[in-house]
Amino acid sequence: MFVFDGGAVTPRVARELRPRDPELQSVGWYTLEQAARLLREDVWERTRHALYALEDKASVYRYRQ
């Protein structure tokens, strides 16, 4: 799984987002605390590391077997 920073979207774009992939049913906006509760542990760990990388303006590569 890779996580990429797509930048910020305007409120208008955010309102108009619609899933196009059949695996996705909806789009939602959550606080970090909500995301931590809603995501699987492994997905939250990757998300957390992605947020650290964004804050540090650095790329992070984490390899797990």
Rank of each mutant, 00 (worst) to 15 (best):
L32Q: 13
L51S: 04
G7D: 01
E45G: 03
K57D: 14
R20L: 05
A36I: 08
V3Q: 01
K57N: 14
V13R: 00
R62G: 03
L32C: 06
E45W: 06
L17W: 01
V60G: 04
D56A: 13
E33C: 06
E16C: 04
L54I: 13
W44A: 03
E45C: 05
L54M: 15
L39G: 02
V3W: 07
V60S: 09
D21G: 01
T31F: 03
E55A: 12
D5L: 03
D56F: 08
Y63K: 14
R46T: 12
Q34H: 07
S59I: 12
V3Y: 10
L38K: 12
Q34I: 06
Y52G: 02
E45L: 05
V9K: 00
Y61K: 14
E55Q: 12
A8I: 11
A50H: 04
G6E: 09
Y61W: 11
L24K: 11
W29E: 05
A36P: 03
A36V: 10
L51Q: 04
T10N: 02
E45H: 11
R62H: 13
V3C: 06
M1S: 13
F2P: 04
R12V: 06
G7H: 02
D5E: 15
R40A: 09
E41D: 11
V9Q: 05
T31I: 03
A58P: 00
F4N: 07
V43H: 13
L54H: 11
A58L: 07
Q34W: 04
Q34T: 07
T10C: 01
A58M: 11
